[in-house]
């Protein structure tokens, strides 16, 4: 395998997915320095009530803020965290975000487990290594990871763990579990 020369910085991408309000932003903020990042959502390729600019492509967009955090492992080795926007209208961004991603954390809330089905389907289909992190909200009934695995019909090798995304230590374990899983997937593929 080719090694990047030591002066060439290496950047890795981890996605944080899951249903609406499940704790994606909280997880990114608990473990990394949150930074502003905006992308644009194309409303239409024709101006909507906007004067046409002669001869140039008029792209009408809104800018949307994304969850984005970075963790510097060392000089020249950075892990970027991207929250994948939950609403369906932002799905156009998923392909771009997941391209070349090391893996994904799918956050689940046991009170509405089915909300994470689309994320799981997506990463299964793309072959992106992912884990399921069950965010334990106050007052929500506790389930064992294996119950969640069965309910979500997950392959046995997909790690499932309980977490509290508000706690840094817990967020750390989530990320380590994902990278270990990605490493396992990588070495299995090389065998």
């Amino acid at each position: 395998m080719a090694f990047a020369p030591s002066d060439e910085p290496v950047a890795l991408k981890i996605l944080v997915a899951g249903g609406f309000g499940v704790g994606k932003t909280t997880l990114v903020g608990a473990i990394s320095e949150i930074r502003p990042l905006r992308t644009e959502e194309v409303l239409s390729d024709r101006g909507v009530g906007v004067d046409d600019v002669g001869g140039v492509e008029a792209k009408t967009t809104t800018t949307v803020a994304m969850d984005f955090g970075r963790i510097t492992i060392r000089e020249g080795l950075v892990v970027y965290l991207f929250g994948t926007p939950g609403q369906e209208r932002f799905w156009f961004m998923w392909d771009e975000l997941s391209y070349g991603a090391l893996g994904a954390v799918v956050i689940a809330d046991t009170r509405r487990l089915t909300d994470c089905f689309p994320s799981i389907d997506y990463f299964e289909q793309r072959g992106t290594p992912f884990i399921v992190a069950v965010n334990c909200f106050d007052g929500a009934e506790r389930y064992e990871p294996d119950d969640v695995r069965i309910a979500l019909d997950l392959d046995p090798e997909v790690p499932v763990l309980l977490c509290d995304v508000r706690r840094r230590a817990s967020a750390k374990v989530v990320l380590i579990t994902l990278v270990e899983h990605a490493l396992k997937t990588l070495t299995a593929a090389q065998r």
């Binding site: 963790i71 080795l77 990588l186």
Partner: peptide, 11 residues
């Protein structure tokens, strides 16, 4: 593998 192990240790 080397990079991923470095990331795990770094985390």
């Amino acid at each position: 593998e080397r990079i991923l192990k470095e990331v795990i240790n770094g985390l």
